[in-house]
């Protein structure tokens, strides 16, 4: 495996946040991100601070009337880290599905090994 896991993106909540921010939108609002990731306000606040400190996420705070609004955007550094992490995850997924496939084949066809034609040395020579 060449790709490596990123310790900041490794927990699934942070992977969700970064993955959603990398989907194509310029900025995503707090509520939209929270609803899409199906996480609580406090979890999103806590995890976004960690990502912001790591330089992966840019945070912009504003207000509409009295309501505070927080917007998030993935930085170039965060995007690169996410791409590397997703590459690693994809490799992992392929490895896991390949090993599962092998295990399934062995358990599903145990007779095949016994009934499979054996290579017998030719006696005609």
């Amino acid at each position: 495996m060449t790709a490596r896991p990123d310790p900041f993106i490794h927990p699934i909540t942070r992977l969700s946040i970064c993955g959603l921010l990398a989907a194509g939108a310029d900025w995503v609002e707090f509520a939209a991100l929270r609803d899409a990731a199906e996480i609580s306000d406090s979890v999103l606040s806590k995890q976004s601070v960690i990502l912001e400190d790591a330089g992966y996420v840019e945070v912009r705070k504003g207000a509409v009337g009295r309501r505070p609004r927080t917007w998030f955007r993935l930085t170039a550094k965060g995007r690169q880290a996410l791409e590397d992490h997703l590459a690693w995850l994809t490799q992992l997924e392929e490895t896991v599905s390949a090993s599962t496939r092998d295990t399934t084949q062995v358990t599903a066809n145990p007779v095949n090994e016994r009934t499979a034609p054996r290579t017998v040395p030719s006696t005609t020579d």
Partner: peptide, 18 residues
């Protein structure tokens, strides 16, 4: 997620929701 490659599928579902 290291023990849960389903994370990629979860990300797809979340992107759909977004």
């Amino acid at each position: 997620v290291a023990r849960n490659p389903v994370a990629l599928e979860l990300l797809r579902v979340q992107r759909n929701r977004l």
